[in-house]
Write a protein that binds this DNA or RNA. Sequence first.
DNA 1: AATGAATGAGAGTTCATTCAT
DNA 2: AATGAATGAACTCTCATTCAT
Lengths: 204, 204, 204, 204
Amino acid sequence: MATRPTAASVEKRRAILDAAIRVFAERGFNHCRVSDIADEAGVAYGLVYHYFKSKDAVLDEVFLERWGLMLEVIEEAKADDALTAREKLAKVATFIVESYGHRPDVMQVVIVEVTRQANTFGRRHWAKIQEGHAGIAQIVEDAQARGELRSDIPASFAGIVFYGGIEQILTAWIFDLMPAGPEDRRLAVETLVETICGGLDARP
Amino acid sequence: MATRPTAASVEKRRAILDAAIRVFAERGFNHCRVSDIADEAGVAYGLVYHYFKSKDAVLDEVFLERWGLMLEVIEEAKADDALTAREKLAKVATFIVESYGHRPDVMQVVIVEVTRQANTFGRRHWAKIQEGHAGIAQIVEDAQARGELRSDIPASFAGIVFYGGIEQILTAWIFDLMPAGPEDRRLAVETLVETICGGLDARP
Amino acid sequence: MATRPTAASVEKRRAILDAAIRVFAERGFNHCRVSDIADEAGVAYGLVYHYFKSKDAVLDEVFLERWGLMLEVIEEAKADDALTAREKLAKVATFIVESYGHRPDVMQVVIVEVTRQANTFGRRHWAKIQEGHAGIAQIVEDAQARGELRSDIPASFAGIVFYGGIEQILTAWIFDLMPAGPEDRRLAVETLVETICGGLDARP
Amino acid sequence: MATRPTAASVEKRRAILDAAIRVFAERGFNHCRVSDIADEAGVAYGLVYHYFKSKDAVLDEVFLERWGLMLEVIEEAKADDALTAREKLAKVATFIVESYGHRPDVMQVVIVEVTRQANTFGRRHWAKIQEGHAGIAQIVEDAQARGELRSDIPASFAGIVFYGGIEQILTAWIFDLMPAGPEDRRLAVETLVETICGGLDARP
DNA sequence: AATGAATGAGAGTTCATTCAT
DNA sequence: AATGAATGAACTCTCATTCAT
């Protein structure tokens, strides 16, 4: 008797998801109740459970939706032969950074509530998170194969450091330790790529 | 009636702290009960509250103790005029990495349960955590002033990226995504410093 | 999403309140657990917290409901110009005493757990309790103005003594130190009013 | 091996008792810990248990000591043939009221923490408390027998009302609802006796 | 007599999830 | 699809009392 979801029900579901993002971002996953999500969405308590299996499942979906987009961008960048390694890395970083620009709440939830939660959601989504690291590593490895990047630094290691850098930058933005305006974001990408690829050493 | 703590009581307190580290590392702060700490330490439930104000206070102390040591090392490295910037950064990274080597449980608790918990303990200890970023940034800034590192990359930004890289490496170790043996650790420091200072770009 | 309470939910709430009265009267507020209330009401533990903010809030409501009725009676008595001072005081005393006749458990809770608990609930409800004293005092004061009662005894003082007498009588009943049958209650009112108004002195 | 208590130990015991009175009066019996008593007395935690069987026992002793004095005074008043009923009642009331004048903390503890605690200490000491009511009732009864007070009001009832009046007055003082200076106290006794014996009715 | 470390039972409250309507 | 009443397990913290020294 499975019926196709109506347009209205799809909207309700979306409304709950969006409400959850706002509430998770504002109070944190562990410090809000399911009823807070329902209140924010303007629906009844029980309806959250009609559309989602559990509170966890709501966060899972917020994460997977956004992280999936990022993985697609990484894949695209990797496959685009017209780009240099620097351009590929910049493309990835730009996507993440501009995701924060457009929806800081979504990215805060993804970073703070999932990827940095090593004991709970981070662990559950390890595979997906690693796909990100691996994609970046792959970009590096391809460039190493082409002689564009040096080969004495393991690509997987570079992927981890590059991602670690971005995550820390976002964390600093989320907690207002650095300005995150449009120009700041553009500069952050440029500087990160320059740091990792060019290195901090003074030019001779 | 404040009396000097006896040697025995100091030991009991320490035993509880060590038990807490083991339990926090194994199950995570949020997934263990105070009674688990007491059981692990082989003491009565209430004794935990005799020595610590709350469960939170136990974790606070674990964090502050270790983080304080790291801040001292950063300070030392910064002040040591005999070292190059690379050597200073390596000294800091080595301390963190070797802390993990000696007491992986402690570092797991510090990283996973505190510094990455942006909504709870991470927020509470922001000031201390930032001291770490700032110390590294200071090392970079001093080197920029001496012309040892390039000045077009903001030191504070470099500090964040460098720390983000280390934290991500430790996270990967903690979750067994990379080997963390003695040689791996030595290499990690060397590679991290080479990545950040030398850059990934192929040598001409 | 505030909706009108259904008839069923109002009944459940009432059932919990009535169960609380029985349990508080039998074991005392401090010697019963919230689960005792739930068990007595035949509902789940958590439902008590669905309807009431806390265990304290349950007692608050028991008290305020009954005390409010008493304040209304005092107000009525005060305003009724057809009554003499003695009749007014008798009306107030009768209401309290008959409240005990009908619902000894409620009055026991009000007196023993609230008005006599000077350090906890009594303090919290001081304002309301004093309204009672003040209302009685007002009755006395009006009668003094009319020359019906002597004016050399401060009305507020008389109010306190009269209320103190009633409270002590109820306490004696609650602890079975005096019989509290219908005739005893009628006599108690009559005798109290006669004592306070007529005085113990032998008639010349 | 029971040895006679030394003068020093008697003093320590007294110091603990006095500290307990201050702490009980300030915070209430249920809101202070045994360690608060020890701290206030400037002795070690465990010493309280050396001198007293339990926390309850400390309060028991505070109560019994003071209540015993009152019972003696009632006995004296009752037996003094030179006094009229009014003088006897005034003597009793004066003792209680002046006890409050000299040691408001002691009387607060006796009234608030014991006699008004119908479910705990009040119940435990019912017999002693009733001795007080009965003593007053006896004074009334003797006066009735001599024709000094009217006989149509049961003496036991009069005793309860008289005591209820005093208790309520003290409660009002304790919670600062009425002034309790020396002159206020003298007047309170006079007015109470005049109310109960003379009655509130206007003199013809 | 004196100390304070050690014990452990106890209770209020929260909140994810289920379910009847 | 929608509601919100109902459930009950989970867990921290308190503090009177005991005991070794």
